[in-house]
Simulated scan of single mutants.
Amino acid sequence: MDVSPALLSDDGVFAAIAETEAAARALHLRRLRLLAEVLRRGLDTDTHRRLVRADAREVKRWTAQATLFLPSTSPTGQPLPPLHPVTGVVLEELSDGHLTQLARAISLRLPDGSEEIPVEAARSVEPKAVRQLADRIRDRAEQDRVDEVDEPAADPGDTLHLRDLPDGRLEFFGELSAETGARFTALLEPLPTPHPDGPRDAARRRGEAFADLIPLASRSGDLPSEAGERPHISVTLDYRALRRGVGHAVLDSDRHLSAAQARRIACDAKILPVVLGGDSEVLDPGRAKRTVSTAQRRALHARDRGCAFPGCHRPPQWCDAHHIQHRADGGTTDLSNLVLLCRTHHSLVHHTHRQVTMTGGTPTFIPPRHVDPAQRPRQNLLHRPPPLAA
């Protein structure tokens, strides 16, 4: 009789879970044996798929498991052992997920004698760990092969392909050597940590982390110069578009940015005013002026100690200097009008027009009503916690 889980003891709940999982493994093994018989008899596989109500990808995965791990029959009717008997011996202990990863491990063509390692692991760990173990065995084998040949010839090197997309976006893909990949991963790993206002999926977080690396690299004193200047971005836009934040700006590569994006760049940039004639003829190039000096940035680092947005842990080297009142709106480049913001919160403040003030020399943020109906002022206490009460 099926007893309601609410009536079971704690040990009974765990016992029921173990029993259910054992039944699920047995059911999957019977599924594989029936599928193997369908294939042996040459029956209609579409009828089988409709009966089990599975998509083609699932049936393909089960077919691979049945072919690799179940005994078969020769054309003359003689019984044949499984192609991979090591896994076949423990089939009753393994789930669909484990068998899927073991079939994948076989497709990786692991070195002879190594099949037992992931099979033994599958008896005690989750499928994801089996996949990671198989990848490590493959990577070790590939590295051993590289060591046996001339390393420069075996290493394909670093490649990067770029393609312009609409709206000024850039698509890139490529391949990094083992050495470069290790260094890149070491730089990236500390950055893509979830935070309340950021993306939750790993790919978006890694993208944000990669974007954070770029301004940090641009501030490096070791970068080469071009025409006497360090690497820079030239953005051209109409002054009225800069004031309103509506319209578009043009990069030297003829790609476009929105005026709002240009306003964010202008927060912490070197501004070169240019007077244009009626036919866009340059009449008077002005003198370049960096909005935030090196001394001011040092002072901001000492004061804010990182992104000033409440709850953000980003250190100062990953932040931009944001004008509380934008320069295009008459704001001055003084410490009382500047605040350090990471890229994510810099975009958020510009996009939502989040109100920022200075309270006792500390940046203070006024949340919108949908976040806090009382709109109580907030400060970032992670970088500078309040003093303990005596």
Rank of each mutant, 00 (worst) to 15 (best):
R264H: 08
R205V: 02
T291I: 14
L335N: 08
G42N: 10
L382A: 01
P387T: 09
P386Q: 09
R138D: 09
E92Y: 01
S336I: 09
L94D: 02
T333I: 02
R163Q: 15
V250Y: 07
A295G: 08
L29M: 07
D155C: 04
V235M: 02
S74H: 10
A26R: 08
G277V: 04
R230D: 10
L338H: 01
L94G: 00
S107I: 03
R30S: 15
R136V: 12
E171T: 05
A249H: 04
R53K: 11
H346M: 00
I366T: 14
T67I: 09
I265L: 13
E120G: 11
G42E: 07
L176S: 04
A308Q: 04
L162Y: 12
L102E: 01
G88H: 05
H28Q: 05
L170R: 12
P194Y: 05
G168R: 03
Q317G: 12
D44S: 09
D252W: 11
L34C: 13
D268I: 01
A321T: 03
A154K: 08
D167I: 02
A262I: 07
P71R: 02
D2G: 13
R314T: 08
L39T: 15
S234G: 12
T185M: 11
I233L: 14
D158H: 08
L216D: 13
T73S: 10
P367Q: 09
Q143D: 14
H28N: 07
T357S: 10
F210R: 05
H313I: 04
L191C: 00
Q355W: 10
H322V: 03
P367L: 09
L340F: 06
K60G: 09
A129P: 07
T294I: 08
R369G: 05
T364P: 00
L29Y: 03
P231M: 00
D112H: 05
E92T: 02
R297A: 01
H98Q: 02
V282S: 06
A390V: 04
G157D: 10
L102I: 03
E151I: 15
A64N: 12
E116V: 15
L160T: 09
R378L: 14
